[in-house]
Amino acid sequence: MTAGDSGFLFTFFNPAVAKQYAPDIAAGMLVTVGVGLAVVVTGTLLGLALAVARALGRRALAWPIVAFADIMRSLPPLVVLIVLYFGLPSLGLPLSAFAVTWLSLTLVLAAYAEESIWAGIRAVPDGQLEAARSTGMRWWQAMRWVVLPQALSRAVPPLTNRIISITKNTALGSVVALNEILNNAQGASSHAGNPTPLMMAAFAYLVVFLPLVVFSRWLEQHWQRR
């Protein structure tokens, strides 16, 4: 082994630096996972609510929902984050970095979720709703028990992919100083004058997201059987 090789390892995989900053990275992981989970829950629920509202069929309701979905899907998430970060304080709503990151990603995920679920609802034959209503069910009941289960089943594969790619954007929170993995790693790296924390960050992200990706691949293969 030449001096150059050990130099590489010493630079990127320095055990002493790793040990010193491991707690920071771990703390960042908690934040990343926390924001991620919160975004998944609220984003999906909001998307579901919007899709159902759109299914009501009232023009006045449908139009703003479509506009919202189009806008949120046409803007880069980082732009949404920055606009909200600077904009909300002007409206008298100074939110923490955690809250702003959570809110922006929720809005973006809701837009995609709404489109996926709406496509699923459209794909369910009209006869399903008619049959359910003909047995005396009210519209809400027919949606809840007959249409939505089928719609959601169709929406799951594209939705899981979307959820993963949007929650990875929690890393963007570092731009507004959210103390998630990347931010903590960048701080640690400049503190230590050594990029090892960045490698730890990479590893930490893989630990969080690789299982999700593998799970979504498994889901895609096995979901059809239902």
Partner: peptide
């Protein structure tokens, strides 16, 4: 494929750029 789907693009960019 799974590795790069799991890796946030911002982190990848920073690693490639600075590393």
């Amino acid at each position: 494929i799974d590795f790069f789907r799991a890796f946030p693009p911002l982190v990848l960019l920073i690693l490639v750029y600075f590393g």
